[in-house]
Simulated scan of single mutants.
Amino acid sequence: MADETIGIVGAGIVGLATGREIALRRPGTRVVVLEKEHEVAVHQTGHNSGVVHAGIYYAPGSLKADLCVRGVALLRDYCRERGVPYREIGKLVTAVRPDELGRMANLYERARNNHVPDLRKVAKEEIKEIEPNAGGIAALHSPRTAITDYPAVAREFAQDIEAAGGELRLGFPVTSITGVPNGVEVGSARDRVRVDRLILCAGLHSDTVARLAGYGREPRIIPFRGEYMLLRPDRAHLVRGLVYPVPDPRYPFLGVHFTPRVDGTVEVGPNAVLALAREGYRLTSISPRDLLGLAGYPGAWRMAAQHWRTGIEEYRGSLSATAFMKDAGLYVPGVGVKDVVRGGAGVRAQALDRDGTLVDDFRIHREGRVTAVRNAPSPAATASMAIAEHIVDAVFTGT
């Protein structure tokens, strides 16, 4: 239908990509993006490390796998068209212990099934040719893995929406979502907006906003803070591309790694510690409301019972730079505490089921006129344009 109004809650990269996709595919449809902050890309998008994932890690056939691979191609072309930095600097996924070789072999097969381009196995001797300062006994090399500037991409998406006649309503914290005849009314403390359909891309607050729309309480968002060190400027030359560990399949986190940024800095991290606030970018950030919600959720206690040892180790790294750099030094030997300074932090919106399972795949649900993104962690930024296609297909065709 022409002349519909589609509301989107959340001006992160997924919400903005979705608004742009609607504006392009459905001329005459008006897009209104509702965002509680006074600028776009403030939270997960604005604290992203900038990696464009190639699709190595994700279960074949999952939404993550399919949308990541599709999203890379879309994002690469878009960045080149708009002049946003996009650099294929490559990635080494490095085994440093013999017991990791089996997991690395499984990862290679998974990546092949996902059609990751130009991926190859690298012997110990070849690692030095790619990364002269890297350690390890074997690796996978993904030369097409890239880095970009996701906040810049998000700003471009926002401009596309406005150029197509859409609107960004910033400073609009959503407090109510109510069904009305032939539409949905979205309210804040000071204003109300009526739309024909509504798409929820609320990131760290996706569960609370979904409940306003009548969705169930699960999955619940659990915030994990990822903290980074930065290589000192005179040591940044030690790393050419991305250097990652072989991930532990029990967790949806990739472990501490080395990440060159488009601004020339090199991050080391992140760890993954339970944040005490949904927007808890500092160790001292505490939200009593968020803590009470966490303490009252059975899934949080079941998760803690399963993973408390790992949690303690992650907190040790948060409190001690020496502990933080202990494992990092295995991947780039010789790099230690003296070579780094404290960097920034981000908070990951990780969905958790009632049984304590960390939700791995994207979850996107549609009920009537409201579509909710319930879980969209990494590689959501990489896949944002493909996620947008998927959402628009679901909203307008029911597929």
Rank of each mutant, 00 (worst) to 15 (best):
K64D: 08
A134E: 09
A189Q: 11
C68Y: 05
P219N: 00
L92Y: 01
A54Y: 05
H390G: 03
Y78P: 13
L204Y: 05
D339A: 11
W301E: 07
P260C: 03
R20Y: 08
R211L: 13
H257M: 01
G28P: 10
T208K: 12
I387E: 06
A349W: 12
M325Y: 02
T382Q: 12
A2V: 11
H53E: 00
L352N: 08
K338T: 13
N113Y: 07
P233I: 01
G61E: 01
R87S: 15
E88F: 05
R363L: 15
H43G: 05
L294Q: 05
G10F: 07
T310A: 13
A17I: 07
R194V: 07
N375T: 15
Y228D: 01
A73H: 14
A380T: 09
F324G: 05
D327P: 07
V93A: 11
A146G: 07
G293V: 00
L168K: 05
V340K: 00
E313P: 03
R217N: 14
W301G: 11
E389K: 12
R26F: 14
G171N: 13
R20G: 06
L212S: 06
R235S: 10
C201N: 13
R232S: 11
G311E: 09
E125D: 15
G83V: 07
A138L: 01
Y150G: 09
G83F: 00
N113R: 13
I221A: 10
P27Q: 04
D77P: 09
L119K: 01
L254S: 14
E314H: 04
R110I: 13
E389L: 11
E314F: 10
F172P: 14
L34N: 08
G83N: 04
I221V: 15
G296H: 06
S384E: 04
A111F: 01
T371V: 13
E156F: 04
T265N: 13
W308T: 02
E129A: 03
G344W: 02
T259R: 01
N48E: 00
M1A: 10
G356C: 13
G241E: 02
A202H: 05
K124H: 11
I391M: 06
M104V: 15
E126P: 04
G334P: 01
R87C: 05
N48I: 03
P98L: 01
R25I: 12
I56L: 13
R217H: 12
A305W: 06
I391L: 15
E156W: 05
V186I: 04
R120H: 14
A152R: 14
P219V: 12
A154M: 01
G336R: 08
Y150M: 06
T259E: 11
R342T: 09
Y58M: 14
F396E: 15
A386M: 06
T397C: 11
T45P: 14
V273E: 03
G46R: 07
Q306V: 09
A146I: 02
G346K: 04
A138N: 04
R282F: 01
C68N: 15
A54G: 11
R374E: 13
Y331K: 10
I8R: 08
G166F: 04
D207R: 05
A2C: 02
T29Y: 06
C79T: 07
